[in-house]
Design a protein around this nucleic acid. Sequence first.
DNA 1: CTTCATTTGTTTAAATTTCAAGGAGAGGTC
DNA 2: GACCTCTCCTTGAAATTTAAACAAATGAAG
Lengths: 179, 179
Amino acid sequence: MKTAPPSAAPASAAQEPPAGTPWLSDEEQRVWRSFIHATTLLEDHLDRQLQREAGMPHVYYGLLVGLAEAPHGRLRMTELAMKAKITRSRLSHAVARLEKNGWVRREDCPSDKRGQFAVLTEEGHEVLRRTAPGHVTAVRQAVFDRLTPEQQKSLGEIMQIVAEGLQPDEAGADLPWLR
Amino acid sequence: MKTAPPSAAPASAAQEPPAGTPWLSDEEQRVWRSFIHATTLLEDHLDRQLQREAGMPHVYYGLLVGLAEAPHGRLRMTELAMKAKITRSRLSHAVARLEKNGWVRREDCPSDKRGQFAVLTEEGHEVLRRTAPGHVTAVRQAVFDRLTPEQQKSLGEIMQIVAEGLQPDEAGADLPWLR
DNA sequence: CTTCATTTGTTTAAATTTCAAGGAGAGGTC
DNA sequence: GACCTCTCCTTGAAATTTAAACAAATGAAG
């Protein structure tokens, strides 16, 4: 009996999906399964590491980093949302939480009264300085330390391609951000 | 000014983390950034596709597939949790939800009174049959169709390595599943 | 100036996930 | 049997995410 992929097709083999697209081959299934497992385990791992050391999940940490990279630690909500690849709604909630922690502050936009800036506070900078080392270590141990230079290069190219294909900007639509 | 990685170190460069671990190089930062973006976008994409077509998130779909792969569409809760790389707690909630949908049924384990089996119902099988094609198509379009055979192979190897490194079984601990 | 469509960001409720316990049975050991 | 520990799974509350609707402001037409 054929083994079905963890997140693709069910075991009922012996036929293809209606229009065109064939099932995943055994090899493709193995790749896909590894991908799902690796990303699931990795996100869990990083989430816990950061929750423990920094008191926030990985996505939130990414938001602080995103702000730290920006000109004056400031970014319009929409820009930050795009940078982090999350919806504006999710960002609103996240920033509200980070604001309560004192890591981030909101500021009105002078030119556009609808606009809001998310600003990294000094405390925010501090948390990053304090927790970045641990996070980098975790990332290294889980990923880079285990891969050869060639694999790292390959990984970068592959992820770049996949990300581009799902990016809502250039080619396709641009509103619901996906689809 | 150096640009910091999306989820690693803040912009404050010019020094290394205290003990040993160096910051990510520019190239490593690019790779890591691509990785985060790709996986974030991909999971969002698949979640929406499945939510729309199958009325459930990607993880839940994975649970049904996991059961479909098992001998009689049956699996002990713990086994299913391990297979899907999620906590038993999360699985409990998930199965409760899937049970309400009629896709899954619970059964007591005769030999071990603590045990529970999660069983894929006929309706469960049906949902998979109906929605698998669309899911496979989504996965293909987002990933496999965009990669060369060499890249697919490489991706498999890399993900395999990363997953193994985070796997709680063999070497390290085995209880909190991570760490 | 009025209207209509769009953009920005928030808000509410529902769904999902996480976290910390907890209940009950299994498996020793004495 | 009493006792202790571990395992299996569940539970309830808190935190986070999603989905849908909304107010306010912008901007382009007309």
